[in-house]
């Protein structure tokens, strides 16, 4: 069976791979037999090999060197390009993070290939599905040059185990000077959250301008915590200083595709929809019955969020208790 290279994206906290990696391994199986590629500082692969094997990696290529993490993006693209040249895989699948997309782009230039970003599905013949224009249009596309490179949007595929050998194979890392131009001097974490990561969460509760203040976002957080959800925000809420930019959902923020999206005090502007329209179930709470978010909602409550949200949180907590 044809080999498909899957780039593993690791959790920044150092505990395993991100869920998107398991999704990528699952999606890659449509095209052939996945091999995982682990790129990072020495010692990176040891803790993730089993997980990669469990989700179908027949081989785990291990390219470990301090420089891989010391410089931005370019080293990863370079090592991956060497592997593509050596192994001639049927395709390369990469989780669709900002870094993943940039690696895909550089790899495309290096290997004379085409690439497709933010795909939500890959068919056996290589046709990919993409969602364009704020979720309004579904597109089918195909790479027509070189080795097809895909970046897979998070939460579009359900990760399914398929135990494989996961045989480790070391890859020598020797980088060109060009790959070592942009030094990562420091990685700074400003917000530590105990909540699930926004793009990976099964449930997202987002607040908008209607929440009215930073303090009042505590009612959004309380509802999120009762559901084990991530917290998001509209751009108006972010611009008003109610919630940090990292949590912005929409065209210029994160794209989320959870099982359940709860929009609280959000009007549903097209740029906000761009980031949440593909959510499986959408619930809206808004005091304006004409708010466009209701056009998307599977279930809507027309009411004041200040009474509806705390009451719902209380009832959910009571049910769980």
């Amino acid at each position: 069976m044809a080999e498909v290279l899957v780039l593993a994206e690791l959790n920044p906290a150092g505990d395993g791979v991100r869920k998107t990696t398991l999704e990528a391994l699952t999606a890659a199986r449509a095209l052939g037999e996945p091999s995982a590629v682990v790129l990072g500082a020495p010692g990176t692969a040891a803790s993730v090999r089993n997980q990669l094997a469990e989700y179908g990696a027949a081989t785990v290529y291990v390219a470990e060197a301090p420089e891989v993490d010391e410089y931005l993006v370019a080293p990863k693209a370079e090592v991956l390009a060497q592997l593509v040249q050596e192994k001639s895989p049927a395709a390369v699948v990469i989780p669709s993070s900002p870094e993943g997309k940039e690696i895909a782009g550089r790899l495309a230039i290096k290997t004379n290939s085409g690439f497709l970003t933010d795909v939500t599905e890959i068919a056996a013949d290589g046709t990919a599905t993409q969602v364009a224009f704020a979720g309004a249009t579904i597109v089918h596309s195909k790479v027509t040059t070189g080795t097809p490179i895909y970046t897979l949007r998070g939460n579009s595929v359900t990760p399914e185990p398929a135990p494989a050998a996961g045989t480790e194979q070391p890859v020598a890392v020797s980088l060109s000077d060009q790959a070592k131009q942009v030094r990562v001097v420091e990685r700074v974490v400003e917000q530590k959250s105990t909540r699930p990561e926004l793009t990976e969460a099964a449930i997202v509760v987002s607040g908008g301008r209607g929440v009215a203040s930073a303090e009042n976002f505590s009612i959004i957080e309380a509802l999120a915590d009762s559901l084990g959800a991530a917290v998001g925000a509209s751009r108006a809420a972010v611009d008003s200083g109610f919630y940090p930019h990292t949590f912005q959902v929409g065209q210029t923020g994160k794209t989320v595709s959870p099982q359940l999206y709860i929009a609280v005090g959000i009007s549903g502007a097209i740029q906000h929809r761009a980031g949440m329209q593909t959510s499986k179930t959408i619930v809206a709470i808004n005091k304006d019955p004409e708010a466009p978010i209701f056009e998307l909602a599977d279930f809507g409550v027309v009411g004041d969020l200040n009474t509806v949200v705390p009451a719902a949180t209380e009832q959910i907590t009571a049910r769980k208790g």
Partner: peptide, 15 residues
């Protein structure tokens, strides 16, 4: 979708 007005029972219907 379903859209309900909150008449004191909005939260309950939501849950």
């Amino acid at each position: 979708g379903v859209k309900v007005p909150d008449e004191g029972d909005g939260a309950q219907k939501l849950v």
